[in-house]
Amino acid sequence: MSVSQSTTKPEKPYPEFPLFPHTRGQWVKKFRGKQYSCGTWYDENGKSNHVAALARWNEIRNRLELGAAPQRKSSDQITTDRLVNLYLDAKNAKVEVGDLSKATFNQYKLVCRWLKDNLGEHRLVESLEPIDFVTLRSKFPKEWRTTTIKNQIVLIRSIFRWAYEAGLLDRPVRYGDNFSKPKPKRVKAEKAKSHKKEFTAQEFWTLFKHAPPQIRAWMLLGLNAGYGNSDLSRLKVARATGEWLDVIRGKTSEPRRCWLWPETRRAIKTVLKNHDGGELLFQSMFGQPLVAEDGTRDAVTGEFKKLREACKVDRKGVSFYALRHMTETIGGQCPGVPNVQVVVDFIMGHKDDSMGGVYRESIPDASIKKVCQHIRNWIMDAKPSRLRV
């Protein structure tokens, strides 16, 4: 990703200057509720470009007042290559201030590369028509699931929407009906045909029996506390040595609290016997966090995959994260707990944007413990009698 102009945001050359420096490297004017890009902050020699930008604005304003749509200069026209670079610059700025994860940013990069490869890097964005998006969708790999298609379409449309809202385009891009998200009915039908993302209790114990101590601790935390790969990777020793586990979930920044089973506590103590004294409870064999923050490495996925294959418990789509699905499903069936879904959401670290979530200050420990005990009873009832936990 490169930016040809200086990235130092300029001040207005004088207080009455009618344009403002937009974060996307353009002098911009807002007029009648719409933003108009009038040229870059700096010219190719690194000198202020505000005089040319003002002249461009006067040209646009004259056309608007005459009732004609403004015409862009060829130098201001946005190609696919320039669009994705500017978009990634904007998202990278969010990464730098902590508003976006590096892993999510890398997913955006992959989609941007795919978009550029399939539209052509020199294609003018404002020339795109619905027929182009019919062609674009036809290039989706045949093996993509409906949810993957949905996510790809949502993200691609968000890139073009961002460009319009940032003042880089004079009008929204028109996609046509063929570039809409798949219907919910189709998503549900495909989900109904796929494997459930959960292990049976017998499969859990088969895996557990053959797992080394660290993976046993992963599995118990996965089912007891609804911990996913990144949750394990971020878990600190200081947080995991008591009866209660309190953390802020990295993905949602939501507080979560869980009562740890005696078996989970013993498994953690076993891991600590060979611990190197570092801050993190778990590490890869190379002494690194289990999951790289940029999403490029995931030891949990790799090690658990080996275990599943060795135990012949390896179904497509049923990975370590399936344990989190089981926490949600089994915990939600706990009898005798008022608002049990609210309690499960708190254990899982789900975000609650409802009015109840805004005003709710606490959840009783008794309710949390009862849900955790319910999950424990479900799995322990199926434990082979000779297997020690």
Rank of each mutant, 00 (worst) to 15 (best):
V343M: 08
A189R: 14
L100W: 01
F346H: 12
S75M: 11
T80M: 15
L207C: 10
D294P: 04
Y164Q: 15
G222K: 10
T80R: 12
E263L: 02
L66A: 07
E309G: 01
D99L: 15
V51M: 10
N49S: 05
P289M: 03
L307H: 00
V343C: 06
L136F: 09
E263R: 02
L281Y: 06
G250F: 00
R265W: 07
N49Q: 07
K191P: 02
Y359G: 07
E143D: 06
P21D: 03
R174Q: 14
M326I: 05
L307R: 00
D345G: 08
T80S: 15
L119E: 02
D132V: 05
K306M: 06
H50W: 10
S253N: 15
W378P: 03
H374F: 11
T135D: 14
V358T: 07
R145E: 05
H350M: 02
T147L: 08
T206E: 03
I363L: 10
V300T: 00
K94G: 11
I60Y: 14
A93S: 13
K94S: 13
Q35T: 02
I330M: 03
K197E: 09
N58A: 01
S362H: 10
G228W: 05
D381W: 07
T23A: 02
G228R: 14
T40M: 01
A192C: 04
G67V: 05
P182D: 07
K236I: 04
